Amino acid sequence: MRKPYDLPSLGDLACFEAAARNLSFKLASSEMNVTPAAVSHRIKALEQELGQPLFNRHYRGVDLTEAGALLFVSLQRGFEGISDSVTRIRSRHDRTAVSITATTAMSGLWLTPRLAAFWKAHPGVAISQIIEDSGRTQGVDLSIHYGDPAQEDDETRVLFRDRILALGSPHFASTFGIRQVSDLAEVPLIRIRSGANAWTDWPEWFSAMNRPAPKGAEFSLNNYLIGLKAAEDDIGAVLGWEGLLGSYLDSGRLVQLVPEAMQSPYSFYLRIHARASANARLFADWLAEQDTGA
């Protein structure tokens, strides 16, 4: 009987995908809990079946051939689709639960403080909150982003869009005598560089003030909450979204350094994934109705 799919051994394909993703037979063997020799054997068997090499082997490692790159991209797409389907199947046993993912900063500063109020209004809906700073959103009902919701294929809800302030500790403000935008041009600045969100950065903020890019020392981080802590510790000035940082300003942990502020070019928005249940949509609508204060 003819096989419905023209596929090599699925075990060989899984082994190849791990080796291609890691560009290392050794790392693939560790991931799959087999020996490097077993990985090499499976990939050689796959190459023999396909009639061409999938890796260029060098003294210091391996890289993909053109055929290997083509196969790797196809496998990744296929495995991602399978993974998403498996996640959906596993979650069907309890569709009253809602899963939502957000960055560490958005979770800590905005989402978590609102969960208690939601549970009081809807005690029968369980929330699974997933902290994810890499931007991955697979297998969840909802995800929170900073950017342009019009670029999304899925349904969205705008949460808020507010002003971006220059913030620092009271001691930092007095030490550098900061009273106007020009005073910020050469002071230490904290910059957030994260792959999950295209955070508005200092050069954009200065441009909105019709000022040249700053020339002061930089302290770069990939985590916004740690950046806020650094600002509290007098390391530098940091940009802050007014709707996220009400508690910092009210408590005096951080102060607005200059009166000027930039209107945020993007909004914080909620993406409603295709798998979202009725309870997920209920939660999404409730979140979108909340004000920006914590």
Results as ranks from 00 to 15, higher is better:
72 F>E: 14
261 A>K: 14
245 L>C: 11
162 D>H: 09
51 G>W: 09
169 S>R: 10
77 R>L: 13
28 A>P: 07
155 E>I: 10
282 L>D: 00
99 S>I: 03
112 T>M: 12
291 D>I: 08
3 K>V: 06
25 F>K: 12
203 P>G: 13
80 E>A: 14
250 D>A: 15
58 H>G: 09
178 I>M: 10
181 V>N: 02
130 I>V: 15
243 G>W: 09
278 A>K: 12
203 P>T: 12
39 V>G: 05
236 G>Q: 04
1 M>N: 04
177 G>V: 08
150 A>L: 12
248 Y>G: 00
208 A>G: 06
141 D>K: 03
7 L>S: 09
97 A>Y: 02
89 I>H: 11
293 G>E: 12
44 K>I: 01
97 A>R: 15
247 S>I: 05
117 A>V: 02
256 Q>L: 00
275 R>P: 00
4 P>I: 13
96 T>R: 13
158 V>W: 01
84 D>Y: 07
223 N>A: 12
281 R>F: 06
254 L>E: 02
189 L>F: 03
244 L>G: 04
46 L>D: 04
243 G>A: 10
8 P>G: 14
156 T>P: 04
141 D>V: 03
289 E>Q: 15
279 N>L: 00
49 E>Y: 11
12 D>Q: 15
146 Y>L: 14
123 P>E: 09
185 A>W: 03
163 R>L: 12
179 R>V: 02
160 F>A: 02
235 I>N: 00
231 A>I: 08
63 D>W: 02
105 A>M: 10
176 F>M: 06
259 P>W: 11
95 R>E: 11
15 C>N: 01
292 T>E: 13
223 N>M: 00
96 T>L: 07
46 L>E: 05
45 A>Y: 01
293 G>K: 13
154 D>R: 09
123 P>Y: 06
28 A>V: 05
294 A>Q: 10
156 T>K: 03
176 F>D: 00
208 A>Q: 08
43 I>D: 05
5 Y>L: 15
271 R>P: 00
235 I>F: 02
3 K>P: 02
91 S>M: 09
85 S>D: 11
218 E>W: 09
1 M>D: 04
222 N>Y: 01
205 W>H: 10
241 W>C: 04
196 A>H: 11
283 F>T: 01
287 L>Y: 05
169 S>E: 07
26 K>A: 14
250 D>Y: 05
58 H>T: 08
29 S>Q: 03
44 K>Q: 11
287 L>G: 03
4 P>W: 10
287 L>V: 06
59 Y>A: 13
240 G>R: 06
109 L>V: 10
122 H>Q: 09
147 G>E: 09
135 G>Q: 05
90 R>A: 14
289 E>R: 14
156 T>A: 05
283 F>E: 00
162 D>L: 01
118 F>G: 04
128 S>W: 04
236 G>C: 04
263 Q>S: 11
83 S>F: 02
258 V>E: 10
173 A>C: 13
103 T>P: 03
59 Y>D: 06
257 L>R: 06
227 G>M: 02
160 F>P: 00
256 Q>G: 05
75 L>P: 04
17 E>R: 15
240 G>Y: 05
59 Y>C: 00
160 F>M: 13
173 A>Q: 15
18 A>T: 02
125 V>L: 03
290 Q>M: 10
218 E>H: 04
149 P>G: 09
72 F>M: 08
5 Y>D: 02
268 F>P: 01
196 A>T: 13
189 L>Q: 08
63 D>E: 14
195 G>Q: 11
212 P>W: 11
180 Q>G: 01
